[in-house]
Each structure stands twice: as structure tokens, then as C-alpha cells.
Design a binder for these strands. Structure first.
Lengths: 197, 197
DNA sequence: GTTATATTACGTTACGTACCGTAACATTAA
DNA sequence: TTAATGTTACGGTACGTAACGTAATATAAC
């Protein structure tokens, strides 16, 4: 008898051990935060995670892809929706959180991923869609609520406003010409999104 | 008689052939604009420049350093000083030029150098001092002239203004979520540095 | 001046290392 | 039985360095 084709829906054979995936991502994340992207080699991940190199390749095609997966695994999108406060307060809180993240060692990861996205097209797409776009979406949502509530004046160009608040943060993160302090964020928001008197 | 010790000041021995240096930089620049930083390998530079690998190492310690040298070699600081126009017009012209550079293939080089600066401390220093700082200085100068002439209102925080004009440009360049058009630059400047009515 | 010598530039070749990505095969878990 | 995982091995690319020879130039001695 000819063999039946697999019944596509149910996974057969030995299932993947979720700890394998978790160990790989954890190792990649640790390496990323310490030594930047250059430290995230398949070799190093394998050693640190206690996993063989081929196994990593069975999950992801290359080291930067693992790094991106590890990065997005922790850097969830901000959940502004469930906030009960004033949208303006939520907006400021969101950017204080971003500033904190950028200032901390986690900021090194963000910078590393931006760097990686410059040379890897696939990574760039993932980074844009899963990180940049999500953060912009969250902020745009809050801005629209602020406008509805009359807390800020409706801007002529919403996308420009988003560029104006995110741009300087990334600029300082990547160039390192000045620190990202809460004071900086406050002045930035006061200038770009002043509360309507 | 014993030979006298060398008279330290004048360079002795065979002088370096300036064409060697030029060929290396030209090759590095070409590779950088096409394939980004990953394409700038010592191997590739050597081949393209018709030079041996050890020779390149006698000039620079590693590939990113060559790339940075090549980058700074062409990307001279903007010379706003000699402009005869209104400082406000000069300011807009400067940013139109930056936008053009960022939009063109040269923008790829800038992005590549930002990326490189994330993992190489020495490069980061050079990039900050020779590129970022110079551009900020040029803009700061023009802004101060505009203020003197009463063309714009004096800002509370000059450095923040610089972050506000440069940040979004780099942000778009590096994230690629939206193009860097002249219209974008115009709206950006209109918002951040409006001409005083 | 002419000549010898030091000094430096550059090419060639070779080495060992790191990491890559893949393939083959054995082993283990469901 | 099926698929996940480990083990081992391989070829490939690029790294950075070292050794050696040759070419080019400056300097010192004559």
C-alpha cells in the first residue's frame, strides 16, 4: 500500500521542546545586550544555550534573525489601550518609559537592531513592522484621543509629529552626542506636543 | 665615523604614494555605497584598489575604519560661512542638501556608518566628532545668525532644536518607514524653525 | 656630486583562527 | 514511525599577522 500523506493538521513525531527555543532566545538576548550584534554569533548562542549549532539553524536562518527574534520577544508593544488615565498623561508616561528603556542597557539592544536592520533586508522589515510601526501606532492612538478630548491642538501632519517625538530619541540613542534623560523627554514633549492652554 | 642619528622631524625613507591611499578610499567608498558595510571587507578593497591586503592594514587597523575614512573623505562639512544669502535661506538650503544626500545612494553610506558606529567605539568617536558635530555646528551657526537678524524667535533650548531638525531625518533614513522628500524637510523646518512673522 | 646605507613602502605568500552554513548520521522522545 | 536534537565533519570566507623580498627615497660620508 502506498503511504498516506500526513494529516496536515495534527503535528506528528517528536514535538519541539519549548525550552530549546527559550534557551536560544535568552542566550541571544544576553549576548546582544553585552557585546552588541557582533557578539551574537551562532557559535556563541549555541554554547551559552547548551544547544547545537544545527539546531539553531533549524529555527532561524542566521544570527541576526535570532537576535531580532530575541529582541522582539522582550520588547513588547506598549499597551496604552488599557490605561485609565488621561490620554495626555498616558502619552507622557509612554515616552518616559521609552526614554528609560533607551537609557538602560536595553537601549544597546535597540541600537544594535537598528544597526542590523541596515544590512539585512528581512530584519529591516521585521523591525519596521514589529517595533517601529507598533510604537508609532500606540502613540498615534494616544494622540488622537488627546485631540478628541481637546487636550492638544490637532496637528497639520500627524506623521510628522510622530517623527518629531521619536526621531530625536533615536538620534540621541544612536549618535550618543547627548544623554536621554527624563528632562530631555519632558522638554521634547513640551515643544512638540504642548498641552493646549 | 659612526653615522649620525636621524633628524626626527623630516620623514625619511620612501614616502607613501598618495595614489595608494586614494585608491583604497575610492574602493572602500564604492563598496560602501553598493553593499553597505558588510561589503567593505579588506579582501574586497584590496582587489578593487589593486593593492595588497597588508598594505591596507598599514594604513588602517580594520575594515570599518577604512570605511569611515572613505566616508569622511567625501562628506565634507557644510560650509555655511561663505553664504551671502539670508541666514534663513541658507538654513533651508542646508537641509535641502542634507535631504538630497540622505535620499540618494549616499544615504546608504550614512546609514552604514551609523550602524558601524554602534559596534566600534573608535568609529563612533570619529563619526560624532567629524560628522555629527560638524553638521550641528554649521546649523547652530546659522540659527544664531537668524536669531541675531530677528528672522526666527530665540529658542529656549538650542540643542533641542538641533535634535528636532536632525533627529527626524536620521530617523527616516534609518527606519525607512517614510521617504525623505523636500516636502518633508519643508514641513519639518516650518514646524521646528518657523520664520517669525 | 657620487656612493653607501638606513629607512620606509609595498607586494607576495603563508599561517592559524573564527565563524559560517550545510550535510550525514546517530540518538531520543513522542 | 515520525520528527527533534545532538554529534561530527566539511568546505568556504574573511580575518589579522608574520616573514620575506624588492622598490623608492632620504641622509650621511667621501
Amino acid at each position: 500500500m502506498a503511504r498516506q500523506p500526513p494529516s496536515s493538521t495534527v503535528p506528528r513525531g517528536r514535538p519541539r521542546d519549548p525550552r530549546t527555543r527559550a534557551a536560544i532566545l535568552a542566550a541571544a538576548r544576553a549576548l546582544l545586550e553585552r557585546g552588541g550584534l557582533t557578539a551574537v554569533t551562532i557559535e556563541a548562542i549555541a554554547q551559552k544555550a547548551g544547544v547545537s549549532r544545527p539546531t539553531i539553524y533549524r529555527y532561524w536562518p542566521n544570527a541576526p534573525a535570532v537576535a531580532m527574534a530575541a529582541f522582539l520577544d522582550v520588547t513588547g508593544a506598549p499597551d496604552a489601550a488599557r490605561s485609565t488615565r488621561s490620554p495626555y498623561a498616558a502619552l507622557r508616561a509612554q515616552f518616559h518609559a521609552v526614554a528609560d528603556a533607551f537609557a538602560a542597557p536595553a537601549g544597546r539592544s535597540v541600537a544594535a537592531m537598528v544597526a542590523a536592520a541596515q544590512s539585512e533586508t528581512e530584519l529591516a522589515k521585521a523591525f519596521r513592522n514589529e517595533f517601529i510601526a507598533r510604537n508609532r501606532d500606540a502613540t498615534r492612538l494616544l494622540l488622537e484621543r488627546c485631540i478628541e478630548d481637546g487636550l492638544i491642538a490637532p496637528p497639520a501632519d500627524m506623521e510628522l509629529v510622530l517623527d518629531l517625538v521619536f526621531g530625536p530619541l533615536f538620534y540621541r540613542l544612536l549618535m550618543g552626542h547627548a544623554p536621554i534623560t527624563r528632562g530631555f523627554v519632558d522638554r521634547l514633549l513640551d515643544t512638540v506636543i504642548p498641552a493646549s492652554a
